[in-house]
């Protein structure tokens, strides 16, 4: 599926990844807080679908920002393992794995943006 604009897509993902990083940081910081449930952002595909739908629906009028207003839904996850008596559902290993995913995606994202930026600058040189 052809991207409307690669840079826009990359910026959207970078924003989403930053919000996810903050959520993971919150989970890890509250790993020992009684009653705290693990939070996570909605998947990136859902964010894209929302913005795609919003764009086609308002084509005649003014195009709004859609999902770019940083209004990503952060929800509490269902507990995957047995719940401790303290009602805390944070699993440090899972959170660190998620953080690794965020890092990898972010590195790919910035590398792609850098490469295409370089190519554009190259072709614009006299």
């Amino acid at each position: 599926m052809d991207p409307v604009n690669l840079f826009d897509l990359a910026s959207q993902q970078a924003r989403w990844l930053s919000v996810r990083q903050t959520t993971i940081a919150g989970n890890i910081a509250n790993a020992n807080t009684p009653g705290y449930r693990t939070h996570d952002v909605e998947p990136f595909e859902k964010v894209l679908d929302r913005s795609r739908v919003a764009m086609t629906a308002t084509q005649t009028g003014h195009l709004t920002g859609g999902a770019t207003e940083a209004g990503y839904a952060v929800k509490q996850e269902e507990p995957k393992h047995a719940v401790l008596p303290s009602q805390n559902t944070v699993a440090l290993e899972d959170e660190l794995m998620k953080a690794g995913e965020v890092r990898r995606s972010f590195e790919l994202n910035t590398a792609i943006v850098k490469a295409f930026h370089r190519m554009i600058m190259l072709s614009s040189k006299a």
Binding site: A14, L17, S18, Q21, I24, A25, I28, A29, A31, N32, L92, E95, L96, A99, V102, R103, F106, E107, T110, V113, K114, H117
Partner: peptide
């Protein structure tokens, strides 16, 4: 032991957040 473990995990997050900010500025 548990406090140490949680401390290490938080430290990892600090390092990663700092690295991500660096990567963005490096663009």
């Amino acid at each position: 032991n548990e406090a140490n473990r949680s401390y290490e995990a938080n430290l990892q997050v600090v390092k990663q957040a700092r690295d991500l900010i660096s990567m963005t500025i490096d663009l």
